[in-house]
Design a binder for these strands. Structure first.
Lengths: 158, 158
DNA sequence: ATTGGGGTTGAAGTGCGCTTGAAGTCAAGA
DNA sequence: TCTTGACTTCAAGCGCACTTCAACCCCAAT
């Protein structure tokens, strides 16, 4: 092995690109084990960099810290991480897909909005009035694609 | 016209699908004008439904309430909403595109994770070790696509 | 007269992932 | 010896968009 834990929290912070306060926070919520101390100060060995990378990747993948904790328990517990990975991923995928769909709709909406010359929401199909077919604002985002690019409402006399 | 403001906050809440507390909150931050009162109670006319729909759509499009406020100022101010729509949309589009990209990467990562049989992060390319080419965890999400489906790391003897 | 079901207020709480601040400790270098 | 600089703790603050709470008011029906 490569000797005693020797990294200070500052060095770990620097090498992992994560604020020291965040590292202490992770420890406080149980994402990181309590490290050895030298004169009261935390000393880490390099393994912690792997775990921090794990955390960073999982965070990027959309897991909350609590969920990452479950993942880590799965890894540290007997069965390896396969089981918890599968169930967490299955739980998470539909969420992510929903976000994806909404984000794509947002993008389309904004592209039309960028070209919008309407003076009031009333004359603009980007903003459905109560009475339009689509009342649900989440649906309203999507309508845009149907019309092509122009957002000007045909002024319907009632 | 159709007479005096007659909708209570409860009716508005029900018809707009927005909690009464949220409506009061919107008023408190200036997104809604102060309505008339009848015996101390707020009375709205139907126009407010249009504005609430406006807010809901813009929120769905990714605008923060503060930004929606700017939008509304643009509409209520002299020039119509076109100018503020354009500048806000231009500001927002790159953000949304960034979210979109990250979300797509997340989806890919999760699809591989769902099939992952690795027992530890060390043997799994889903979790890069320090020393792998990609240290940036945002990049780590994307690597997956390159490899196809399997995430098992070739056990590189050092 | 009382009950019920709305409405009103301001303040505080929620969730998430940290950051910031104050006040103190510790070891090494000038 | 004194100063620096990095570390320590615990508590509080932040941003966002609300929600919840306690305490109150008001009107209509029974």
């Amino acid at each position: 092995m490569d000797g005693f834990p020797e990294l200070t929290i500052g060095e770990v912070s620097h090498r992992a690109g994560i604020a020291a306060s965040a590292i202490r926070y992770y420890e406080s919520i149980g994402l990181l084990p309590e490290p050895d101390r030298l004169g009261g100060q935390r000393r880490y060995d390099e393994k912690v960099l792997g775990r921090l990378a794990f955390i960073a990747v999982a965070r990027n993948a959309g897991f909350k810290l609590r969920e990452i904790g479950e993942l880590i328990e799965g890894v540290d517990g007997g069965d390896g991480m396969a089981g918890s990975m599968r169930s967490l991923s299955e739980r998470k995928l539909p969420e992510v897909e929903a976000v994806l769909e909404r984000t794509q709709a947002m993008k389309g909406w904004l592209e039309v909005a960028r070209e919008c010359g309407c003076l009031t929401p009333a004359e603009c199909t980007l903003f459905p009035e109560p009475g339009d077919q689509a009342v649900d604002p989440a649906e309203a985002l999507k309508i845009v694609h149907v019309d092509g690019k122009d957002c000007r409402r045909v002024p319907a006399r009632d």
